[in-house]
C-alpha cells in the first residue's frame, strides 16, 4: 500500500479499529505514523486535562452528607428560590419605600412651613409695635400723664 492513509483510516487507527494493509502501512509510513501519534497524544492530554479540571471542580465525590437514600439535597434550587424571593421582596419593597420616603419629605415640608409661618407672625408682631420695646415704659408714662391732665382740665371746666 503506497498511498497514505485516508482520514477515516487514521481515525480508525486512533480508535484501534484498523487491520490489514492499512495497519501495516501505518507501521511503515513515518508520515502516517506521526499523524496518528500526534492525534493520539493530543487526545491523551485532553483526557488528562479534563480529569484534572473535574477534580479541581470538586468532582472527586458526592457533596458531604449527600446520599440518594436521604431526601435529596435541594441546595441549588433553594439558592435559586432564595434569590427569586429576594428579588421579589426588593421589587415589592421599592414602591413602599418610595411612598414612605415621600410621606417623610411631605411631613418635613409641613413642619418647615409651620415654623416659617410662626416666624412670620413674630416678625409681623415686632413690626406692628408703635415704639421699640425699651421705650414702652415711657409711652406708658406719657399716656398716664395725658389721661391725668385731661381729667384735671375736665374738673376746672
Amino acid at each position: 500500500m503506497n498511498q497514505h492513509l485516508t482520514p477515516q483510516e487514521i481515525s480508525q487507527c486512533v480508535c484501534g479499529e484498523i487491520s490489514g494493509a492499512a495497519e501495516s502501512h501505518a507501521r511503515e509510513c513515518p508520515a502516517c505514523r506521526a499523524e496518528i501519534q500526534r492525534l493520539s497524544s493530543a487526545l491523551r492530554q485532553f483526557r488528562g486535562a479534563v480529569h484534572e479540571w473535574s477534580r479541581l471542580e470538586g468532582g472527586d465525590g458526592a457533596p458531604a452528607g449527600w446520599s440518594p437514600a436521604q431526601p435529596r439535597s435541594f441546595r441549588l434550587p433553594l439558592m435559586r428560590w432564595a434569590a427569586a424571593a429576594a428579588l421579589l421582596a426588593l421589587v415589592t419593597a421599592a414602591p413602599l419605600y418610595r411612598s414612605a420616603r415621600q410621606r417623610q419629605v411631605a411631613a418635613q415640608a409641613a413642619r418647615a412651613a409651620r415654623a416659617d409661618a410662626l416666624l412670620l407672625q413674630q416678625v409681623d408682631f415686632e413690626i406692628s409695635r408703635a415704639v421699640p420695646v425699651p421705650m414702652e415704659p415711657l409711652v406708658t408714662l406719657i399716656s398716664q400723664s395725658d389721661s391725668q391732665s385731661t381729667a384735671s382740665q375736665g374738673k376746672t371746666k
Binding site: P7, Q8, I10, E35, L39
Partner: peptide
C-alpha cells in the same frame, strides 16, 4: 466517532 475525530484532526490542520 470517526466524524468527530475527523473534525478534531482538521482543527489540528492535519493532512493524510
Amino acid at each position: 466517532l470517526f466524524r468527530a475525530l475527523e473534525t478534531v484532526r482538521q482543527r489540528f490542520g492535519g493532512t493524510p
